[in-house]
Design a protein around this nucleic acid. Sequence first.
RNA 1: GGGCCCGUAGCUCAGAUGGAUAGAGCAGGGGAUUUCUAAUCCCCAGGUCGGAGGUUCGAGUCCUCCCGGGCCCGCCA
Length: 579
Amino acid sequence: MKERVEKSVIESIKELYSLEPPPFKVEKPREEKYGDLSTNVAFLIAKKLHKKPQDIAMELAEHMSSSSGLGKVEAVGGFVNVKFSEELIREEFRKLLAEGEKYYRENLGRGKRVQIEFVSANPTGPLHLGHGRGAVVGDTLARLLEFFGFDVTREYYINDAGRQVYLLGVSIFYRYLQLFGREKERPDIEELFEKEGYKGEYVVELAKLLREAVGELLTEGKVGEAKERMLSYSYGFPLNYLPKLKGDSEVELCSAFGLDVMMDEIKRDLSDMGIEFDVWKSERSLYERGLVDKLIEELRRKGLVYEKEGALWLKTSEFGDDKDRVLIKSDGSYTYFASDIAYHWEKFQRGFEKVIDLWGADHHGYIPRVKASLKMLGIPEDWLEVYLVQMVRLIKEGREVKMSKRSGELVTLRELMDEVGPDAIRFVFLTKRSDTPLDFDVDRVKEKSSENPVFYVQYAHARISGVFREFRERFSEDPEKLKLTDKLDQLREEAEIKLMKKAIMMKDELVDVALRRDPHLITYALMDLSATFHNYYNHYRIIGVEEGKMLGRLALLMGVRNALRVGLKLIGVRAPEKM
RNA sequence: GGGCCCGUAGCUCAGAUGGAUAGAGCAGGGGAUUUCUAAUCCCCAGGUCGGAGGUUCGAGUCCUCCCGGGCCCGCCA
């Protein structure tokens, strides 16, 4: 609809003033009395034309009313307001009925290759709520861009190199020894565990699983034998790290084992949330392919690094960062920053035309240095978009729940999923902009009332399905098979026009959401449409009224159902037939 | 000390690129309903948009300063 108005405005301006209009706004006005869509274009060209905006608006409105076929066009205080005619609304709604989901699609992306990297949580512990939020936002963004014609790759970057993974191994080994009461025999392990180990309950579980596979072999230093046993043990999921293990210490064995188990668990958590990744990219593999070294070589060649105090520094400060950053520490090991740049460089080489990263908000200080380093590599500035995801607080009985039994600190995604299910989680995680903190009220989403937005929207869909069910029973005829597109003339009530309008105008909103990368607005559009529907449902009967009217109303509901389904599908929430 | 985000109704929040009398849900008050699901609907009340300046025809939105809250600022990962 927006497009139609835009077109008409441009044409009118050309005809009236032989002027190429500047970029102008077409948007939903604050209040309904100002019409359905409104434009500020008169303000923008007033200076150039040496005319008052009010006069321009009036001339435009007059021209547009007679030529556009949009409906009533009025000038109010310099704004040009369009109120769609019922004919136009029916025409669009007819298209919606005929095309179904396709009505909402548009090929904005034209196959442009976009990568969305999200979650990328360290595989050293279970996913917590913040990760879950990133997962939902990223997945919804991916769904949206796919819907609008982008070629989307969902990618998870696994930090499987470096110290954290080593510490995971230490922690598992320590807990394992503890199971046999023999942790005192390895004071080195004990000390490291006490200082930096992972203390969560899940590590004990890992240790128990390890014991099941190898018995007490590892308490006696029989690493080789233990490895054989672990490889032949049936865990019920594939092993990636254990078979490739090169080292032969207990800790390395435990690390590889821990990675395999944790990655499996993370994949399952995500999959149960309805999220599947196309690529699981291993940090370690970047090193193995020599990419990090190659990157440093490249930066050295460009003269962008220097040595200081035994470390290798990158001159990011010359490219917008507030200071230089270390790539290779004085002990010879690489920083995470080095592999992160290598990773983004690799993404660029893979041919993605646009890369979207979702990071935890605690990484915000990281953005300038990564952007600076990409600039150094000659990568265009708008190639990488980074969005931050803030933390989630869990609220129960009006109070914040801080501790998780499992992780020992933050509440895990799995725990919440078990309690409220993926639909509620996905919906609520999309009720606020991702870069602001979110409170998740567990009690609210368990309520079955209008206070619970998830149920409110799903219930709207279920109600429509209920009407169709009833129709099928009473008339032994499948409403899906009826040709209803020519029954729309029956819809004359104001509430019916309004409902049709909401359903067709959701398209503009979805396009906006995709372009703005603001997936949380989908939930608002859905709640708005649901409210309009519930309102209508309460005032009008569908079955039992005169036949023409009934069929018209069935058509109306069918279109609304389409809109609800598209919106729900985009946020990955089920559209139930019955509740 | 520097950086990022936030401050809008009692509460939780929408208000992208400056536009019309600042919106919604919940809570509060009042009402509806022989139903295709009452898991719903309607009405009322509620605001110095943290404060002060500035830019503009026009500022919740942009700029400066201040106040309040959160997060970050390693040769950590």
